[in-house]
Computed example of a mutant assay.
Amino acid sequence: MPTMKISHYFEFEDHVTGGIHESVVHQRKMLDGLDLQYTTAPTLDADVFHCNLMGPRSAWYARRARSRGIPVVANTHVTAEDFGDSFRFTNALARPLKPYLERAYGLADALVCPSAYNQQLIETYTDAPTTIISNGVDREKLEGFESLTEEYRERYDLDPPVVFLVGHVIKRKGLETFVELAHRLPELDFAWFGPLDLSLKGRETTALIENSPDNCTFTGFIDDIRGAFAAGDIFCFPTHEENEGIALLEAMTAGKPLLVRDIETFSWLEDGADCLKVSESGVAGFEAALQRLEDPSVRKRLGTNAAKRSKHFSLESVANQYQSLYSTVT
Rank of each mutant, 00 (worst) to 15 (best):
T3F: 03
S7V: 08
E11A: 11
T17V: 11
G19R: 01
I20N: 02
D32F: 01
G33P: 04
L36M: 08
Y38M: 06
A41M: 06
A41V: 04
R57Q: 13
R57Y: 10
I70W: 01
P71R: 05
V72W: 07
N75I: 00
A80I: 00
F83L: 13
G84H: 10
G84W: 03
F89E: 13
T90S: 15
A92W: 10
L93W: 11
A94L: 01
P96N: 00
E102N: 15
D109S: 10
A110M: 14
L111S: 09
C113W: 03
Q119S: 10
D127F: 02
D127E: 12
A128L: 11
R139P: 00
E140M: 08
K141M: 13
G144V: 06
T149D: 06
E150K: 15
E151V: 02
E151A: 14
R153P: 10
R153Q: 15
E154C: 09
R155S: 10
R155G: 09
Y156M: 09
L158R: 10
P160E: 15
P160F: 05
P161A: 11
V162P: 06
V163K: 04
F164K: 07
F164Y: 15
G167Q: 06
H168I: 04
V169S: 03
I170H: 04
K173F: 11
G174A: 04
E176D: 15
E176K: 12
L181W: 02
L188W: 07
W192D: 08
F193T: 03
L196H: 03
D197W: 09
L198S: 11
R203C: 00
T206K: 15
I209C: 03
N211D: 13
N211M: 01
S212G: 14
P213K: 11
F218I: 08
F218G: 09
G220R: 06
I222T: 05
D223T: 14
D224L: 09
G227K: 10
G227P: 07
A228Y: 09
A228E: 03
A228W: 10
A230F: 10
A231W: 05
G232S: 09
I234W: 09
F237P: 03
F237M: 01
H240S: 12
E244W: 13
G245N: 03
A247T: 15
A247R: 05
M252Y: 04
A254C: 14
L259C: 07
T265K: 00
W268L: 11
W268S: 15
E270G: 09
D271I: 04
G272C: 11
D274P: 14
L276W: 02
A284Y: 04
G285Y: 05
E287D: 02
A288E: 14
R292T: 12
L293M: 14
K300N: 06
L302R: 01
L302C: 04
G303H: 02
H312D: 11
H312W: 07
S314M: 01
E316Y: 02
N320M: 07
S327A: 15
S327C: 02
T328W: 12
